[in-house]
């Protein structure tokens, strides 16, 4: 197969668009993991909640898209904040596996509730940019994908700015390194944890709104969590830039393997990469090796 530059550019662009979603979901995972040492398996269902709330507001309520987006992000953020403050906080100090099980339980309950409220049908989310295509020279990109790339870049910059340049961000970093030391320095660790969960939830809600126009508003959207986990592992557990780069890499690998690899590899290549990375480089591309305390 000859290498067509237009095809390569097209694949790269598509890969960046899907990878940006993976990266954003992974960003939410890393934030909560660093703050509370809980790997949030409910992130995927928070995303589904975002997609469904957005759909209800736009299709049923007739709310204009930008306003609906803001309401959705705030609502899902508040939901995540409530989950942390009401449920997840209770298991602080227990083995990590408890956190995994608890968030899986929360994910099941969320999924059950969403399907009880909205029914099992899938729907399409109408947006002002659905079905439009933007041409960048010879390369076409669908408008929803372009929005994803732009928004993902914006959210990343926002997160970086927040964590690096504000007192709040520095407090979050301190608490994620050593909660006791942070607490003794006067940082309200509990409130901060809830805030981080709210932020991660808001990102999940945003991802739901971004992902739904590309596919459908459906319960199975949560499976994007699995790809995000692969991205998180590839970037190194608990590294924020790593999660984003991992997401982009997974997106690119998927797109390219869809064309250059045998049929069917595209669906599982993310997981093969995950296993390979864990085998060869357990700390990922950006992760730092930690010794374990005995």
């Amino acid at each position: 197969m000859g290498l067509d530059p237009v095809l390569l550019a097209q694949l790269t662009l598509n890969g960046i668009a899907t990878g940006a979603i993976y990266g954003l979901v992974a960003l939410g995972l890393v934030l909560t993991y660093k703050a509370t040492e809980v790997l949030n398996f409910a992130q995927g269902d928070l995303l589904v909640a975002g997609a469904f709330i957005g759909w209800a507001l736009i299709a049923l309520g007739g709310v204009p898209y930008p306003l609906a987006a803001v309401i959705t992000v705030v609502a899902v953020g508040a939901l995540a904040c409530g989950l942390e403050a009401g449920v997840v906080r209770r298991i602080a100090g227990q083995p990590q596996f408890s956190g995994v099980m608890l968030t899986i339980a929360l994910a099941f309950m969320l999924r059950g509730l969403i399907s009880m409220v909205f029914g099992p049908d899938s729907r399409s989310l109408p947006t002002p940019f659905t079905g439009q295509t933007v041409w960048l020279g010879p390369v076409a990109i669908s408008a929803p994908s372009l929005v994803v790339i732009v928004v993902a870049g914006f959210v990343t910059l926002l997160a970086f700015g927040l964590l690096r340049a504000t007192t709040l961000g520095v407090a979050i970093q301190a608490a994620s390194q050593n909660q006791l030391a942070a607490y003794l320095s006067g940082i309200p660790v509990k409130r901060l944890n809830s805030f981080v969960w709210a932020g991660a939830g808001a990102v999940a809600g945003l991802c739901g709104l971004l992902l739904a126009p590309m596919t459908l508003v459906d319960l199975s959207l949560w499976t994007v969590l699995l790809k995000a986990l692969a991205a998180m592992v590839l970037g190194g557990f608990g590294s924020i830039p790593g999660a984003l780069v991992g997401g982009l890499l997974i997106g690119l690998i998927e797109q390219f393997s869809g064309v250059f690899m045998p049929d069917g590899i595209k669906d599982i290549v993310a997981y093969i990469v995950l296993i390979g990375v864990l085998m060869l480089r357990p700390h990922g591309l950006f992760g730092e090796a930690h010794g374990r305390r005995v």
């Binding site: 339980a105 994910a107 099941f108 009880m116 029914g119």
Partner: peptide, 16 residues
């Protein structure tokens, strides 16, 4: 349709 999965989640959460 979602009742079953909700019940699984609830039982698990209560136990954890």
């Amino acid at each position: 349709f979602g009742l079953e999965i909700f019940a699984y989640g609830l039982v698990l959460a209560v136990f954890v």
